[in-house]
Design a protein around this nucleic acid. Structure first.
Lengths: 338, 338
DNA sequence: TTGTAGGCGTTATCAG
DNA sequence: CTGATAACGCCTACAA
């Protein structure tokens, strides 16, 4: 005989059926106030702990949502977590996180875990063309899945993102307007990530629009990180004819680049301008403060959560496409080329 | 009739009992190789999805662990998440996160959620004396709970941390050795957080050891953030007789402080030295690179995960106390006082 | 408004 | 090594 308090026990104590206990928890309005009160009292007095696993099994549906991010250490993704929870908290949903490290094996494994745990919905950052299998399986799986931080081509997948192409275009254009012609690019693994590739395309398009020829020699693909940004910048500045401006398509790359410039004796922005991407919070605290593109991370994640909750509760699964605006945050790391 | 693949269905297909299917999943070695192979084949062919909720219910035990952090946006806590998952991944455990925002109401709510979901263990950062109720309930609850990033006084709670007192002591001492006597302090909400209070105590003890009187006027308690650090530093540097060195007991405070100094025309370290705390990754990329105390965040989280998994699997619940070493990382933001 | 009872998909015990 | 079967704790028609 279990000495552990379950619904049955509460029911016995109050002298009511187990169904009534369940009801006072899930739809209190459907039980007579007096009964309700007695049940709640017993729950309180006997420290009854509701068992979500059992409920999940019975309902064939959980109140857990799975969140997939590449790297919890990056503020951009951390803020997604915060936003999601801010929105979920009051509704008593829980968050299951997975850190993919940009590794699709890990991602697949985590998704499988989510699936086995029967999460009610998934919010993930980024979605690659190479993930068509994934697309198919999520479709069949039948739960809502929203991609954030990215504007997708694929009309079958919901997203709440921003236009990486446009944002990168405007950053590059800004540099061009300042008179720069030799504009270097330091960018993350765009060969793997669509969201990053769009930035490269935006950069190229802006150059082209101004009849500046794309120069692969001053364009570096690297992993995203402070050190990586620094290394890339060192290479760029060691060139016989270094760029006069750099578009670092991630703030952390920009911060690394800034460090490289400083250490090599280049003044920013006098000797070389640097524009970042993301407007992470330290960007404003760099020396000099970093001019960058602000992407609406928090609001994307928040909006996505709102939408997914809606879908879960109404048991719908329509496709949403939201594209939020980005903006140029002009600080002190870029200057007119003379 | 459900068209959804469950164990029963696989069993029927293979012509074996449901128990055998369960076995080939959970203890493959206990089933005849040929049978095993057939079952696995069917699982593969029919895209069977294991239902963890059901298993959890049956086992009365889950394989999810709850992680409580104050702010997912802070790299220190992000790295904990990463470390925990790195360790959990291969064992097929999942992580449920909760972001407390340093708010104990939220924390209590999240813990209750964890409890209802029947998590197998809890890893949390920080533990306050004010949380004695919590201590009691976790005790009764009976699952392992490990506090990280902190060395606790309370012998009843497991921790894997480091000695904040000692670390702060050594940071302050370093400043003193450099000849500073007027050493300011910018620190997080130590009135609320034990882990932060220890830093204040370490700071004071170091001063006292060198017969420097603690001066409350150059000591500021604030929330932890870049802007907060900047504001605090502005106040300090506006004093008629500003400090010649600052111990910012969190790197983000230090970075804010650095910014304030720069904007106010103070050179760091020539006019004022700044030492940080935490060695977050951008610290090395500041201008100047930040001298700071390195705390073993990743390894604490990793170790804690290892321990908690051990407890879960062996069904034990002993108390562990691990204290890791911190170290002084000397870079360029502090200089000899002349 | 309340009770009855079958079912959710696994695990685990006990035989065989 | 394999099978039958009773839990696990809750939800949800259906009935009263």
């Amino acid at each position: 005989m279990s000495n552990h308090t379950d619904m049955k026990k509460i029911a016995d104590i109050v002298g009511v059926s187990i169904a009534t206990v369940s009801r006072t928890i899930n739809s209190p309005e459907s039980v007579r106030p007096l009964t309700r009160k007695k049940v709640l009292r017993a729950i309180e007095d006997h420290q009854y702990i509701y068992n979500s696993s059992a409920a999940d099994l019975s309902r064939k549906k959980t109140t857990v949502i799975g969140v997939l991010i590449p790297d919890a250490q990056m503020p951009m993704f951390g803020s997604a977590l915060v936003a999601i929870q801010d929105n979920l908290q009051e509704k008593n949903y829980s968050i299951m996180v997975g850190n993919t490290k940009y590794n699709s094996n890990i991602e697949v494994k985590l998704l499988k875990q989510f699936q086995q745990r029967n999460v009610a919905g998934i919010i993930k950052t980024g979605f690659d063309a190479t993930q068509s299998t994934l697309e198919k399986s999520i479709k069949e799986w039948g739960i809502p899945c929203i991609v954030i931080f990215e504007k997708l081509q694929n009309p079958n997948i919901s997203y709440v993102g921003f236009d990486n192409y446009k944002a990168a275009f405007s950053a590059t254009q800004y540099l061009i307007e300042l008179g720069h012609k030799r504009i270097g690019l330091i960018v993350g693994p765009y060969t793997k990530q669509m969201r990053i590739r769009k930035r490269v395309e935006g950069y190229k398009a802006a150059l082209e629009e101004s009849n500046i020829k794309f120069n692969p020699e001053i364009s570096i693909e690297t992993n995203v990180g402070l050190l990586e940004g620094k290394n890339a910048m060192s290479r760029l500045l060691s060139l016989p004819e270094p760029p006069t401006a750099i578009f670092a398509a991630a703030d952390r790359l920009a911060i690394g680049a800034l460090r490289a410039a400083t250490e090599m004796g280049f003044c920013v922005p006098e000797d070389v301008s640097i524009i970042g991407y993301g407007d992470i919070d330290v960007a404003a605290f760099c020396n000099p403060p970093l001019t960058t593109v602000r992407t609406p991370n928090y609001s994307c994640a928040r909006k996505a959560t709102e939408l997914i909750i809606g879908q879960i509760e109404n048991n719908t699964n329509t496709i949403f496409h939201y594209c939020m605006e980005t903006s140029l945050i002009i600080r002190d790391s870029c200057i007119q080329y003379k």
